[in-house]
C-alpha cells in the first residue's frame, strides 16, 4: 500500500518548516569540502582527480544499480552517494590504481549503505567501510604514499594499472608524517602539516582548509560542534598527558591534532548524523571515545594511523550510547522506566 502524491495532504505539527533537507545538508558538506579537495588537487595534481573521480563513480553507479526503481531512488538526488564517494576519495593515497578506488566506492555504497536498507539505516560510516575494506584488501597499495611535490600534470603510473593488477613502486615513496614519527622518530614541522605540503592521503593534508570547512558547516548548522570539539580536545589532553611521561617518545599534542586523518575524520566523518549519537551527553561520550582510541592506536598499536578504526568502533557503540543517554521524560521519576 504505497500511496504517493495524495490529493489530500494530512499533516501534523509542526507546520513551520525549516529549509534544511537531506539534499541541502549534503550540498553544504560538499561545499565545505571543496577547498580541501582543491588543495588535494593542488598538491597531488591530476592523480587526485583520477582517484577521487574513480571512487565517486564507483559509489554513484552502485547507488543507481541497487536502488533501481524503488521509492528509495529519491535518495540518489540527495547527493549522499556523491558525498560518500568524495569522502572515500579524500582518504585514499594519490598513487592508488583507479580500479581500486572504484572498487572502494562500490563496497562503500554496497556494504556500507545499501545492504543496511539505504541512507539512515547504516550502522557504520559508508566511506570508512570502503576504506577499511581497501586497507585490509590491498595493504601495500593503500600504504604507498607518493610525495606531493611533483608537477600538476605528472601522471602517477600506478593510477593506470589494469584492473586486478598492481605494480609495486620502489624508491619514490615517502612516509607520512605519522609513519615517520612512529618508525623513524622524526617530527614533521607543524607549518607543513598546517598548510598541507606533506605526503599522505588526498584530503588529509591541509589542516587549515579542513578547519575552515568545519566552521562553514557549523555556521550553516549542519554539524554538531560537540563531536569535533570533544574528539580534538581529548586528543590534545591525552597527548599532553602522555608527553609528561616521555616527551621524546610521544608526539606533541599539536602534532597529534594536525597529522594524519584526524581533522578530516573528526569534522566530516564522525559527525555523520546517521552514525553518531543523538543526545548531547551521548555525543560527548562518542567524541571522547574516538579521541582516546585514536591516540591509543597511534601510540601503542602496530599501525601509524588509527582514526578510521576509532570512528568505526565508536559507530558500532552508537546505538548503545543512545540507549543509555536518553533524557528523562519530563514528569517521570528517576529510574522510572515506562
Amino acid at each position: 500500500m504505497k500511496q504517493r502524491d495524495p490529493e489530500l495532504l494530512l499533516q501534523h505539527a509542526p507546520f513551520l518548516r525549516q529549509g534544511m533537507t537531506t539534499p541541502t545538508a549534503m550540498g553544504d558538506v560538499l561545499i565545505a569540502l571543496t577547498p580541501a579537495t582543491l588543495a588535494g588537487l593542488w598538491y597531488f595534481g591530476i592523480s587526485a582527480v583520477l582517484v577521487i573521480g574513480a571512487s565517486i563513480a564507483g559509489a554513484v553507479l552502485t547507488e543507481i544499480a541497487f536502488i533501481g526503481t524503488e521509492r528509495r531512488g529519491e535518495s540518489l538526488l540527495d547527493g549522499s552517494g556523491l558525498l560518500t564517494g568524495l569522502l572515500l576519495g579524500l582518504t585514499l593515497p594519490p598513487g592508488l590504481p583507479m580500479w581500486m578506488a572504484f572498487l572502494g566506492g562500490v563496497i562503500a555504497l554496497g556494504l556500507g549503505k545499501v545492504i543496511w536498507g539505504g541512507l539512515g539505516n547504516n550502522l557504520f560510516n559508508p566511506a570508512l567501510v570502503g576504506r577499511a575494506f581497501l586497507l585490509a584488501t590491498f595493504p601495500i597499495a593503500m600504504t604507498t604514499w607518493t610525495t606531493p611535490d611533483e608537477a600538476f600534470w605528472t601522471f602517477r603510473a600506478t593510477n593506470f594499472d589494469i584492473p586486478f593488477t598492481y605494480t609495486e613502486v620502489d624508491g619514490i615513496t615517502a612516509a607520512t608524517p605519522l609513519g615517520l614519527m612512529k618508525f623513524e622518530q622524526q617530527v614533521m614541522p607543524l607549518s607543513n602539516l598546517f598548510m598541507g605540503s606533506t605526503s599522505g592521503s588526498l584530503g588529509e593534508t591541509s589542516g587549515l582548509l579542513l578547519i575552515l570547512g568545519g566552521i562553514y558547516l557549523y555556521i550553516r548548522r549542519d554539524l554538531d560542534w560537540r563531536v569535533p570539539v570533544s574528539i580534538l580536545l581529548t586528543v590534545l589532553v591525552f597527548s599532553a598527558t602522555l608527553g609528561l611521561f616521555d616527551s621524546e617518545r610521544f608526539p606533541t599534542p599539536l602534532f597529534s591534532v594536525f597529522s594524519g586523518g584526524l581533522l578530516l575524520g573528526a569534522i566530516y566523518m564522525a559527525t555523520d548524523p546517521v552514525t553518531s549519537p543523538t543526545t548531547p551527553t551521548g555525543t560527548w561520550i562518542f567524541g571522547i571515545g574516538i579521541g582516546l582510541l585514536v591516540v591509543l592506536i597511534r601510540v601503542f598499536g602496530g599501525m601509524p594511523e588509527g582514526v578510521m578504526y576509532a570512528i568505526l568502533l565508536m559507530n558500532a557503540a552508537t546505538p548503545l550510547i543512545d540507549r543509555f543517554t536518553q533524557p528523562r521524560v519530563f514528569g517521570h521519576m528517576r529510574g522510572d522506566n515506562d
Binding site: 556494504l111 575494506f133 585490509a136 584488501t137 590491498f138 595493504p139 597499495a141 594499472d161 589494469i162 586486478f164 593488477t165 598492481y166 605494480t167
Partner: peptide, 20 residues
C-alpha cells in the same frame, strides 16, 4: 590462475573475508 600481475585481495584469506 591469473599470472604474476594479479593483485591478491588479502582480506579474502583473512577471517573477515570468510564472513564477507
Amino acid at each position: 590462475l591469473f599470472g604474476a600481475a594479479w593483485e591478491p585481495w588479502v582480506i579474502m584469506i583473512l577471517p573477515p573475508g570468510g564472513f564477507l
